[in-house]
C-alpha cells in the first residue's frame, strides 16, 4: 500500500495561516493504515495547528472529516456540505487523494498535510519499507523476485555497479544490502542464474502525463477515452 508521513507542523502552518476556517480531510484508506492520515492523526493535526494559531495570535476554526478513500470521486464528492463551510482544506491523503480533492472542489485551496513516500510493505507497526517504484515494466520475473529498480540504489538492470562493498552492502550505506548480490544468490539457489546472464535491453520507461490504466476486460467500456 501507499505509505506517507506527516509534513512538519511548521510547514503546514505556513500554508494555512492566512485562513480562518480550515477543514482537515483524512483518508480511510492507505494513509489510515500507515498511521499518517486517518481520523486520529487528522484530529491530532488540528489540535496542533490550533495551538499554533493560538500561540501566534491568530484565530481559525478547525473541522475534521475522513473520506473513506480520497482517491475515489464518490467519497470525496460526499463532503460538499462541509467543504462549502470552509475556506481551505488540508488533505491527509496521498498525493492522489489531495489532487482529487482539489479537482473536486476547484474553488477551494487544498494543501497537503502529508508527504507521500512510496509503495511499501509493512515491516512492523509503523515501520515500512519501499518495495516497488510502480515503474510499469515489472522485472521481478528474471530477478528472483527482488526489484532492481527499487532495491538497487542505482536502479540497474544488468547487474551490480562497482560500488558493492566486500561485506555485500551497497556503497550508499552499510545498512543496504547490494540488491544484485541478493538477486545472484537467490537465482543461484533456484538454479536460475541464466535469467541474468543475458543482457537486458534498456527499460521502457512509461513517463508521460498522468498515466491511465484500463484493466483487461474493461477496454471496450473505456475505449473512447483511451487515446492510443
Amino acid at each position: 500500500m501507499i505509505k506517507a508521513e506527516r509534513k512538519p507542523l511548521e510547514e503546514i502552518y505556513n500554508m494555512v495561516k492566512g485562513y480562518s476556517s480550515i477543514l482537515s480531510v483524512g483518508c480511510g484508506g492507505c494513509t489510515s493504515v500507515c498511521l499518517a492520515g486517518g481520523m486520529r492523526e487528522t484530529i491530532l493535526l488540528n489540535k496542533e495547528l490550533s495551538d499554533c494559531f493560538m500561540k501566534e495570535g491568530g484565530k481559525a476554526v478547525f473541522s475534521v472529516v475522513v473520506t473513506e478513500r480520497q482517491c475515489n470521486e464518490e467519497y470525496t464528492g460526499d463532503i460538499s456540505d462541509l467543504v462549502s463551510e470552509c475556506d481551505c482544506m488540508i488533505s491527509m491523503a496521498c498525493g492522489v487523494g489531495a489532487q482529487l480533492l482539489a479537482e473536486t472542489y476547484e474553488s477551494k485551496p487544498v494543501f497537503p498535510g502529508l508527504n507521500t513516500m512510496f509503495v511499501g510493505k509493512d515491516l512492523d507497526v509503523g515501520l515500512y519499507q519501499q518495495n516497488c517504484r510502480t515503474c510499469g515494466d515489472c522485472k521481478l520475473g528474471y530477478t528472483g523476485g527482488i526489484c532492481p529498480i527499487t532495491c538497487c540504489s542505482k536502479s540497474l538492470l544488468n547487474g551490480p555497479c562497482g560500488g558493492t562493498c566486500l561485506d555485500g552492502s551497497c556503497e550508499v550505506s552499510r545498512d543496504i544490502p547490494c540488491a544484485w548480490n541478493k538477486i545472484y544468490e537467490r537465482l543461484k539457489a533456484q538454479n536460475r542464474l541464466d535469467n541474468i546472464l543475458n543482457i537486458h535491453e534498456p527499460m521502457e520507461w512509461i513517463d508521460k502525463g498522468p498515466g491511465i490504466l484500463v484493466q483487461q476486460g474493461y477496454e471496450s467500456r473505456y475505449m473512447k477515452e483511451e487515446k492510443k
Partner: peptide, 25 residues
C-alpha cells in the same frame, strides 16, 4: 562506460539520479 558514484556521495546530495540506462546498456 561506468555507472557512476551515487549522488549521495557528492556535493549535490539531493539531486535526482538518472540511470536511464546502465553501464552495460
Amino acid at each position: 562506460s561506468i555507472s557512476g558514484d551515487h549522488q549521495s556521495f557528492g556535493d549535490q546530495k539531493n539531486s535526482k539520479k538518472v540511470f536511464d540506462i546502465d553501464s552495460i546498456q
